[in-house]
Simulated assay, not measured.
Amino acid sequence: MAELYTPVAGLAPVLRQDAVSIQKTAPLARLSFRGRAEAQAAVAGALGFALPQTPLSAASGAGKAALWLGPDEWLLLAPEAGLEAFEAAVNAAVAGLAASVTDISHRQDAVLVSGPRAAWLMNSGVPIDLALPAFPVGMVTRTLCHKAEVILWRKAEDQFVLECWRTFQPYVLEHLLDAARELSAA
């Protein structure tokens, strides 16, 4: 599967150090989906893969991803260019069922935090244990980063996706850059 979270072409990284980097990602289609078992099965059919049912997990395939956010809530991701078709397919799948599908594509953005000190940098503002045994590759959670609500997804041992509301992103990035200055001084 092609990676959904790709750096914005031609845009310099927000931060580039030997131990860590932060890059803004290209826009994505983002749908907030809520529904019970029947609606979940219908959405799985539209996605081409089953929604993750295990807390703190993600599933992907067919160029899309689904992040588990709660017992009946998922963040559905797809390439931005296919937003209208993606939204139409999900809405058609749940037609007549008790479900909610909301386009939140313009509400949030994401950054990639990568490098051998990525977990250290993220822990400067995220109050959960990001050591690999406690937060393994593939784990996803809704949490706080410097008082802003975020979604954090560990994509690799040394790479995190940090999703947050666009209006909070400058605040979150400012605090991460401050922490990175401390890291570079250490």
Results as ranks from 00 to 15, higher is better:
L75M: 09
P13I: 04
S32Q: 11
R117G: 00
V113A: 06
P133I: 14
L47E: 14
W153P: 04
P71K: 14
V90D: 00
V101T: 05
L144G: 06
D178C: 09
A37E: 10
N91E: 07
F33R: 02
V137I: 09
F33G: 09
R166C: 14
A180T: 06
A118L: 10
L47M: 14
L162F: 00
P52F: 08
A134Q: 12
P136S: 04
E174M: 13
S60C: 07
P52L: 05
S184K: 10
R34E: 12
N91P: 01
T143Y: 11
R181S: 07
H175E: 14
T143G: 12
E163G: 01
A156P: 05
S184E: 15
P133N: 09
L132K: 03
L121A: 06
A180Y: 13
A58C: 12
K147L: 12
L144K: 08
A65S: 10
V137P: 00
D109A: 11
L176Y: 10
A131V: 06
A44P: 12
S114D: 11
S184C: 12
A39W: 04
D129V: 07
P55C: 09
C164Q: 11
V111C: 13
E157R: 13
A185D: 15
Q17I: 03
E73Y: 07
T167H: 15
K64D: 06
L69W: 03
M122T: 04
L112R: 06
N91T: 15
L31E: 00
L97Q: 02
C145I: 01
A29V: 02
N123K: 09
R117K: 14
W74N: 15
H106Q: 13
P133G: 10
F33P: 01
H175W: 08
P55N: 06
L4P: 08
Q53H: 02
P170A: 06
A118N: 03
A62F: 09
P136E: 09
P13Y: 07
F49E: 01
L162P: 00
E38W: 08
A186R: 15
G63T: 05
P55W: 04
F168M: 15
E157G: 12
A39L: 03
